[in-house]
Design a protein around this nucleic acid. Structure first.
Lengths: 112, 112
DNA sequence: GACGATACCTCGAACAACAAGGTATGTCAA
DNA sequence: TTGACATACCTTGTTGTTCGAGGTATCGTC
């Protein structure tokens, strides 16, 4: 009976994925490297993070996928749905809110 | 065997606590409300988060505590040690890094 | 003498993020 | 041709943070 809320800082991988996919269609393996690049190496998420999030995002209707064979290998390309764009908006707002809150707490002058 | 790193976004409660305690000595119950206030209501951490973090911070030598009786009730006041100030510096840098990385990823123009 | 605020604390569950592995194909060089 | 490395997909088990809910005790006040 312990109806717990998600941790207040979670969902950043989700946010990054949605954001990148809002710019262009991509496949999982590509996204792993894109996240590293887009964040200036600050954030590096492995396949063990990316694939499950991608799947859950698709299951919840935020993403749609299409498989494509490219030079013998199969790629699964993901793109945003309307719901996904909505979700992206929400996560962006959430992020701005908590980011702002922390900035607020940090910018108060030191004890000096 | 699976020597896992801490989640890349963790340690924000720790950061907030150290930051507030760098400004002034405080006790746990007070910190719960201070965090809400300092972040402009954006972040609200319960006692179930605060106390354990406080204890682990003390165990690791970042904080020191002193108990004080104030009008019949016991308060445990925490303050930073040198090590704690060092720790605060590190966490602040980490935060700026990941915050900047995300900002970078988000500010790229929309697919439009 | 019951209620709400203060003040401390711990427990168990939930869950995100993690490393490590496993499958299979392509390329290139030894 | 075989071995190594990159591409490309995936799942599993573990960890560790965070969470709500509870539990204790004192104080004021109604």
């Amino acid at each position: 009976m312990t109806q717990s809320n998600p941790p207040f800082m979670s969902g950043v991988p989700e946010l990054l994925l949605l954001r990148l996919l809002d710019q262009s269609e991509m496949y999982g393996y590509e996204l792993v490297r894109s996240i590293r690049a887009a964040t200036g190496e600050a954030i590096s998420l492995g396949e063990g993070v990316i694939y499950p999030v991608l799947h859950s995002l698709e299951r919840s209707g935020s993403l749609k996928s299409k498989r494509m064979a490219v030079s013998g290998r199969t790629r699964v390309y993901y793109s945003l749905t309307g719901k996904g764009r909505q979700r992206l908006g929400k996560l962006q707002d959430d992020w701005r809110r908590i980011q702002g809150g922390i900035a607020n707490a940090l910018e108060v002058p030191s004890h000096a």
